[in-house]
């Protein structure tokens, strides 16, 4: 089960690599076109956050299985400054990236499961899972 693949994110090109990896794995697992696009969009957003706010970090992807369901989990880890007020960044309307616009709440809605953990001065870890329907 533990076939984790990771992409280091340091610049904008790495975001594309992370997307590519995510799309390949999603396709392999049997996700439809729309869900593939959702998963890659979530990866884009998370990778962009790493690139813009943490400087560097990585996006890891792993197939998961739980109670007979199959899915894909995105793990976004960085060693950046951390998020001081998680509740605030999880609020709609709070955007700093100016990119896609919806930020983390949007990622949460694109995926089925979402957890975030952040420590000031040591970094942020986000887990987001999409299940096959």
């Amino acid at each position: 089960m533990d076939i984790q693949s990771c992409v280091e994110v340091c610049n904008e090109w790495d975001i594309v690599s992370a997307r590519q990896l995510g799309r390949n794995m999603a396709k392999e697992l049997g996700f439809g076109n729309v869900d593939q696009a959702r998963i890659t969009t979530a990866i884009s957003e998370l990778a962009r956050n790493i690139y813009l706010y943490a400087g560097s970090g990585k996006i890891c992807l792993e197939p998961v299985e739980q109670m007979g369901r199959k899915g894909l989990r995105i793990i976004a880890v960085d060693n950046g400054p951390g998020i001081r007020d998680i509740r605030k960044v999880m609020e709609d309307g709070y955007t700093t990236s100016g990119g896609l616009g919806a930020g983390l709440p949007g990622v949460k809605r694109l995926m089925d499961e979402f957890t975030i953990d952040s420590t000031i001065d040591s970094g942020t870890e986000i887990l987001a899972t999409k299940w096959l329907r």
Binding site: T41, D92, G93, L100, G101, A102, P105, L110
Partner: peptide
Amino acid sequence: GYGFAYRE
């Protein structure tokens, strides 16, 4: 992207 904005 539109879906993203729509849901927000």
